[in-house]
Design a protein around this nucleic acid. Structure first.
Length: 436
DNA sequence: TCTGGGGTCCTAGGACCC
DNA sequence: TCTGGGGTCCTAGGACCC
């Protein structure tokens, strides 16, 4: 988030899919309509989505599955392992429906979009449009959504929260300062912990100042104290509640300053080769994200750890490596990651989790390779572009680098060597070995 | 409510230097 | 080394999100 100048009155819509993963899973299962449904995280460790029925049972989001297992079973709940390919596909369908309303759709997360509606003037127009959005998304995708509209992103979020939790809104809530009575009422009925960006640590700090609702917070006079207690972010949220835009217009599309890929393993891994294979997957994933935003990386962090919940030896170690030159080349990043692994790896440990973090991210456009390296750098760009294109077309993991032995991805579409050679004009293996 | 997943950003405070 | 100022860089940990 970065500051922007307050400008002409804006309107933002926030469209949020209801219990998104659970909704996706029940699309083709009308028999589950009135049953509790939950979706589990990648290793079935915790609950990452729950439909209304499941929430009514007191199911905690992001809580461990084993704790809820009994109650879910008693009530005949449907339990799904997550299927991210399906969710990503449904997310694209929702987004493309929303693009029919405005070209300015900013994807905030897999189940949420901000839409810039600044051209529309009246509350009535906005109400009609928001209702139409909801109707059309539900008609085209069968995913239920709620729509909140406000003059800032924080107020749009707040409106969405009201739309979702108060039946009388029927899934659509418009906050417009021109309707001051409703604006005041909306902020007064929202508790500080329900404001976007105010989490479990900040809320008690506000309450200690006697600020219990969004309205109290919004009108608190001592802005310096807010900045001190809740940092820059808190100060921005307070302004946004007043209707003053502080969050940059394109903040969803801003380039990441760091890219992380980490996961817990289904089974413990002890051998270094096992960790190498897993880290190779992380590097593939992270470096593709890096290239998608046209960036280069200059510093890489790797960590490996045992499970918090096992008895026996606990081990955590991490290492950082600075590259001689920023790169976006998977092979170079992987080489660096392996170097760090050599430094932090200890024999005889049951590892449960590992991660790769690309830090020191720089813009590709602003990087000038030395005259000597220009050719190499450009060849790498082309090679990586070809690889990404094939993976996008033929399925993730079609072309892999290093000894990826992916325990996370269930299946990969294979591509024949002949087709590959035809696609890039020269044997990929040859290219890889030549570059190394 | 004490966080069994994954990801991003911010900042306080330490290390180091002049 | 019972140390006084001030700047920069780095990193671990905090906080938030879905």
């Amino acid at each position: 988030m970065s500051f922007t100048q307050p400008n002409s009155p804006s309107k933002w819509a926030l469209v949020d899919c209801n219990s998104f993963f659970a909704s996706c899973e029940t699309l083709f299962r009308p028999d589950l309509k009135d049953k509790p449904v939950v979706v589990l995280s990648s290793n079935d460790g915790c609950i990452v989505a729950a439909n209304r029925k499941a929430k009514q049972l007191g199911i905690k989001m992001f809580g461990p599955y084993f704790e809820a297992q009994k109650i879910l079973k008693t009530h005949g709940a449907a339990v799904f392992s997550s299927n991210f390919a399906l969710y990503a596909d449904m997310s694209r369908r929702v987004n493309s429906t929303l693009l029919e309303f405005s070209p300015h759709v900013e994807v905030y997360s897999i189940d949420e979009c901000f839409i810039n509606l600044s051209g529309l003037a009246s509350s009535k127009e906005l109400q009609t449009l928001a209702e139409e959005m909801k109707k059309r998304v539900e008609l085209y995708t069968a995913i239920p959504v709620c729509v909140g509209v406000g003059p800032t992103k924080v107020l749009a979020k707040l409106a969405n929260h009201l739309a979702k939790n108060n039946k009388e809104y029927k899934g659509v809530c418009i906050i417009d300062k021109a309707d001051f009575y409703h604006y005041e009422k909306s902020l007064k009925q929202t508790a500080v912990e329900d404001i976007w960006g105010i989490g479990r640590k900040s809320a008690p700090k506000l309450r200690a100042l006697g600020l219990h609702s969004a309205w109290d917070f919004c009108h608190y006079h001592n802005e310096k104290l807010i900045q001190k207690l809740l940092t820059k972010t808190g100060a921005m949220i307070q302004q946004e509640l007043k209707g003053i835009e502080c969050i940059a217009e394109d903040f969803c599309d801003q380039k990441k300053k760091q890219i992380m890929c980490s996961r817990s393993f289904e089974k413990n891994v002890t051998a270094k080769e096992g960790l190498q294979a897993i880290l190779a997957n992380f590097v593939m994933e992270a470096s593709e994200k890096l290239r998608n935003q046209q960036s280069l990386v200059a510093g890489i962090m790797v960590y490996i750890r045992t499970s918090h919940f096992q008895s026996g030896i606990q081990y955590f170690n991490q290492g950082f490596v600075k590259l001689d030159e920023p790169t976006q080349d998977t092979r170079k990043i992987l080489k660096a990651v392996y170097k760090v692994l050599d430094q932090i790896f200890k024999e005889g440990i049951d590892y449960k989790k590992a991660g790769v973090i690309l830090c020191d991210i720089v813009d590709q456009a602003s990087f000038q390779p030395t005259l000597f390296d220009v050719g190499n750098f450009e060849r790498e760009l082309v090679l990586m572009e070809v690889m990404d294109k094939i993976n996008a077309k033929e399925g993730a993991g079609t072309i892999k680098i290093g000894n990826c032995n992916n325990q996370f991805k269930k299946s990969h579409k294979k591509i024949s060597k002949v087709l590959l050679t035809r696609l890039i004009g020269v044997s990929f293996q040859k290219l890889v070995s030549r570059e190394n």
